[in-house]
Simulated scan of single mutants.
Amino acid sequence: MIALASIPYVGPFLAFATSRFGLPLVVAGVVVFFYEGVPIGPLRDIPWAGPKLASLVDGRVDREYAAGGKAEAALWQEKLRLAAIAQAADTKTRQQDIDAAAQEYIDKQHSDAARISELVRAQKDEDNVPPDPTKPAVCKPAGISAGVSTRLDAIGR
């Protein structure tokens, strides 16, 4: 005790800390220090030393805050991952719809080309039929004759 009393500041502090009023204050200070820690401010941002120093002097509140931040970041990462999966599935579905529509259009063009060639063949057959002597002569309906149609097809109608 004599060694502690010889240090100028420790002796009066121990005397106050063990007094009737000092003991509750010291206990309250220890509780606040445990929960709040030592505020280190911008020292926390130093790349290597900041996290090491924070782990030493942070209180329970700061540790829980950091743990909550990590949990929230992990939750957001999971939500972003699920959103990316949903977006990829939606994009794939839309692309399949576009491909199906394009294939339907191409199929319709091929069927239209076949139908047009049948109509042209029927027109040519109709133009080459000799006139029926039992029917009176009439004018043909207005339209493009088979010869003109063939020449137009050659140049790309």
Results as ranks from 00 to 15, higher is better:
Met1Pro: 12
Ile2Asn: 11
Ile2Trp: 09
Ile2Gly: 05
Ala3Val: 13
Ala3Thr: 13
Leu4Asp: 14
Leu4Arg: 04
Leu4Val: 13
Ala5Ile: 11
Val10Lys: 04
Pro12His: 09
Phe13Tyr: 14
Phe13Asn: 08
Ala15Phe: 12
Ala15Gly: 10
Thr18Cys: 10
Arg20His: 09
Phe21Gln: 13
Leu23Lys: 07
Leu23Asp: 13
Pro24Ser: 10
Pro24Asn: 08
Leu25Thr: 10
Val27Thr: 13
Ala28Gly: 10
Gly29Cys: 10
Gly29Asn: 12
Phe33Val: 06
Phe34Lys: 03
Tyr35Phe: 15
Glu36Ser: 11
Val38His: 01
Ile40Arg: 00
Gly41Arg: 03
Pro42His: 05
Arg44Pro: 01
Trp48Gly: 04
Trp48Asn: 07
Ala49Asn: 01
Ala49Arg: 01
Ala54Thr: 15
Ser55Lys: 08
Ser55Tyr: 08
Ser55Cys: 03
Asp58Tyr: 04
Gly59Ser: 10
Val61Thr: 12
Asp62Cys: 02
Glu64Phe: 13
Ala67Arg: 13
Ala67Lys: 10
Gly69Ile: 12
Lys70Glu: 15
Ala71Met: 09
Glu72Asn: 11
Leu75Tyr: 06
Trp76Tyr: 11
Arg81Glu: 15
Leu82Phe: 07
Leu82Met: 14
Ala83Asn: 10
Ala84Pro: 00
Ala84Thr: 06
Ile85Trp: 08
Gln87Thr: 15
Gln87His: 08
Asp90Asn: 10
Lys92Cys: 03
Thr93Gly: 06
Arg94Ile: 08
Gln96His: 07
Asp97Pro: 00
Asp97Tyr: 06
Ile98Tyr: 10
Ile98Ser: 05
Asp99His: 01
Asp99Val: 01
Ala100Thr: 12
Ala100Cys: 00
Ala100Lys: 04
Ala100Met: 04
Ala102Gly: 02
Gln103Tyr: 04
Gln103Ala: 15
Gln103Gly: 06
Glu104Asp: 15
Glu104Lys: 09
Asp107Arg: 05
Asp107Tyr: 02
Gln109Ala: 12
His110Ile: 13
Ser111Gln: 11
Asp112Phe: 08
Ala113Glu: 14
Ala113Gln: 10
Ala114Cys: 00
Ala114Asn: 05
Ile116Met: 05
Ile116Glu: 11
Ser117Asn: 12
Val120Asp: 01
Arg121Thr: 12
Asp125Val: 02
Glu126Ile: 08
Asp127Trp: 11
Asn128Met: 08
Val129Gly: 00
Pro131Asp: 14
Asp132Cys: 06
Thr134Met: 07
Thr134Lys: 01
Pro136Gly: 09
Lys140Gly: 07
Pro141Glu: 14
Pro141Lys: 05
Pro141Met: 05
Pro141Arg: 06
Ala142Phe: 07
Ile144Met: 11
Ile144Pro: 00
Ile144Ala: 00
Ile144Val: 15
Ser145Arg: 02
Ser145Lys: 05
Gly147His: 00
Thr150Lys: 02
Arg151Lys: 07
Leu152Val: 06
Leu152Glu: 14
Ala154Cys: 01
Gly156Leu: 07
Gly156Met: 05
Arg157His: 08
